[in-house]
Amino acid sequence: MLDPLISHPKVGSAGKTGEWRVFKPIVDHELCVLCLECSEYCPENVIEVRDDKIWIDYDYCKGCLICKNVCKMKAIKAEREFY
C-alpha cells in the first residue's frame, strides 16, 4: 500500500537534474577566498571543496545562481548553456 509513497533519499533519485540548467555557475579560483558562503546557500547541496578549491557537481547543479548572488567576491559568473 505504501511503497509508492515512501522514498529513501539517495543521490540522483530524480535523475541527472543538472540537465535542467540554463545558466552554468563558473568559479574564478583567483578571486575565490573559500569563504563557503556559496556552499551554505546552494539549495542543491552540490558545492564542496576539493583539492583546496570550490568544486560544483554539475550533474546536479540546477543553475539557480544563488551561489553567484551570495558571493561577496564576485567570484562566480554565469555562462549560458542553452538558448
Binding site: P4, L5, I6, S7, H8, P9, S13, A14
Partner: peptide, 16 residues
C-alpha cells in the same frame, strides 16, 4: 529515515 510523498516518477502515483 525515509521521505514521504517525494516527487514521484514512472508509475508511483498511478499505483498509489
Amino acid at each position: 529515515e525515509f521521505a514521504l510523498n517525494a516527487v514521484t516518477v514512472n508509475d508511483a502515483r498511478h499505483k498509489a
